[in-house]
């Protein structure tokens, strides 16, 4: 039982372990925090669905180190990100920028929802108006009663 617990505890520690190695970290905690925040927004080009903060790929390591070097050299967050985007393109950003080419991506779902809601509204409105149709004429009432009598 104790062994099982120890094994589980060890598994938990490996889950907690991050890709960022102690040797990579900057001494200045504020600068390191900025680096961590930026690296969570940058895609690892090798794994492509992980941030460079999470990835253990060599290239992710190199990009983390490069990012920290840029910050140490006095780059703002924007400048450091642009430095990497210039080389790898917008694809490196996990959150795509809002620009004409990505308008469909950002606003498409909301536009489709609005379109569907509009259609539903039109449909429902037509249905309620159809409930207000004029009552049956005396002739129609007579026919209806005759039909019902036949059935009964």
């Amino acid at each position: 039982m104790r062994i099982v617990l120890i094994v589980l505890a060890l598994c938990a520690t490996t889950l907690m372990a991050r890709a960022v190695e102690p040797g990579e970290m900057l001494k200045d905690p504020a600068l390191e925090a900025r680096a961590r925040a930026i690296s969570r927004e940058l895609r690892c080009l090798v794994c492509q669905n992980e941030s460079i903060d999470d990835s253990n790929a060599d290239l992710a390591h190199d990009l983390r180190v490069l990012l920290r070097q840029r910050l140490l050299a006095g780059d703002s967050d924007r400048e450091a990100i642009d430095f990497i985007v210039r080389r790898y393109g917008d694809f490196v950003l996990l959150k795509p920028p809002v620009e004409p080419a990505t308008y469909f991506l950002w606003f498409g779902p909301a536009a489709l929802l609005a379109l569907g809601a509009g259609g539903a509204w039109l449909y429902l409105r037509r249905r309620t108006t159809s409930a207000d149709e004029p009552p049956l004429s005396p002739e129609e009432t007579r026919r209806l009663e005759a039909l019902l009598r036949e059935q009964g």
Binding site: L45, V46, L59, D62, L63, L66, R87, G89
Partner: peptide, 13 residues
């Protein structure tokens, strides 16, 4: 050796 030139080229493998 350090792969820095490769990064400047945008190489990813």
């Amino acid at each position: 050796l350090d792969g820095r030139t490769a990064i400047d080229f945008g190489l990813y493998g």
